[in-house]
């Protein structure tokens, strides 16, 4: 088994094929999309491959330490930041191929005109916690 992080981006991913902002879809198209996403997650829960999924607000803040006894410095959000993560799903699957298959399925969610959005999703393997015995 291997764990993968499936990332969805607000910004920073290459442009998808059917890339139309959601507020320009019809209400019916939005409902169909949301149902597809729910069904996808429900199916993965059933197969025992789903671990966690969360959506993130587009608004965030940059924070850093500013020295002893001082409050942390905050800045942003920066409009020029290239990468903006919209949400994630953590999967635990048997193989890399299975992770690819699922990511492909999620990217096929219907969008404007009822056609798949072909959105680019980022698939990142987790680094394992335990060393692999090689000797």
């Amino acid at each position: 088994m291997a764990k993968y992080l499936l990332l969805k981006h607000y910004r920073g991913a290459p442009t998808g094929v059917n890339d139309v902002p959601m507020d320009q879809w019809t209400p019916g198209e939005i409902s169909a999309h949301l149902k597809y996403m729910d069904d996808f997650a429900a199916r993965l829960e059933e197969t025992g491959e789903y671990i966690d999924g969360q959506a993130l607000s587009p608004e965030g803040t940059w924070v850093r330490y500013d020295g002893e006894g001082r409050p942390p410095v905050t800045d942003g959000p920066f409009a020029e930041t290239k990468d903006l993560i919209a949400g994630w799903m953590v999967l635990d699957v048997d193989s890399y191929d299975r992770a690819l298959e699922l990511a492909g399925e999620l990217s096929a969610a219907p969008g404007a005109g009822g056609r798949p959005i072909h959105e680019w999703l980022e698939l990142r393997p987790f680094l394992a916690v335990h060393p692999t015995v090689t000797e």
């Binding site: 959601m22 507020d23 320009q24 879809w25 209400p27 939005i30 949301l34």
Partner: peptide
């Protein structure tokens, strides 16, 4: 989702 649907309905 609700607010997006309202925008989509009007658009």
């Amino acid at each position: 989702d609700h607010l997006t649907l309202q925008a989509a309905r009007l658009n």
